[in-house]
Amino acid sequence: MTELLSAKNLTVFRGERCLFHNLSFALNAGESLLIQGANGSGKTTLLRAVAGLLDLEEGEIRWRGFSTLAHRQAFHGEMAWFAHSVGFKSDLTLLENLRFESGLRSTSMGRLSAVLDKLGLTSLTQLPFRALSAGQQRRVGLARMLLANAQLWLMDEPLTNLDTAGQDLVVNLITEHLQGGGACMLASHQAVGLNSDMQRIVLQ
């Protein structure tokens, strides 16, 4: 198995408080990692640190064996980020928002209609993003992940705001992604209905 992501001795402080210290993990192709912990235990912080949004106090993160700091662009080109605030402009339509992505990263716009169909968004493409419900907005975020050709998915509370069908959909998408040789790291306080061979990190 190819090792995709590895983290060694991560230490992150928020202000004076040490959220985690000497945390190490590795993620191979086809594997997923679930970060669990109470509110405020640093789940999101860990994800943001791995993504490169936060500076590490100590430690190193490697993607395919290369430091993510030194090879930021290569890493970000293969990574997709899905968080609480989905990161779309509320004044633009769903389609305009997704088109913008294709200027930023490698995006398969050819699969657009298939992806929208899968997520049940086909009839909403001309609506401004603000007119969508919270759950629909999350689905657009999922559409971005599917269109981006990312090996690594970083997902913060992926099940928030989604109905049961949507939650099943997320689980299916993650399973498909893993079967396709991708890797996934997610933070959730809900039990994600994935197969039990998921790695786990429990933050105190």
């Binding site: 490169g52 949004l53 970000h76 968080a83 402009k89």
Partner: peptide, 18 residues
């Protein structure tokens, strides 16, 4: 400001573009 508020800034920083 709006990029920070709606999370677009995260996406911009995490894009492979400089």
């Amino acid at each position: 400001l709006s990029d920070l508020e709606d999370g677009s800034l995260d996406q911009l920083i995490l894009s492979p573009q400089p």
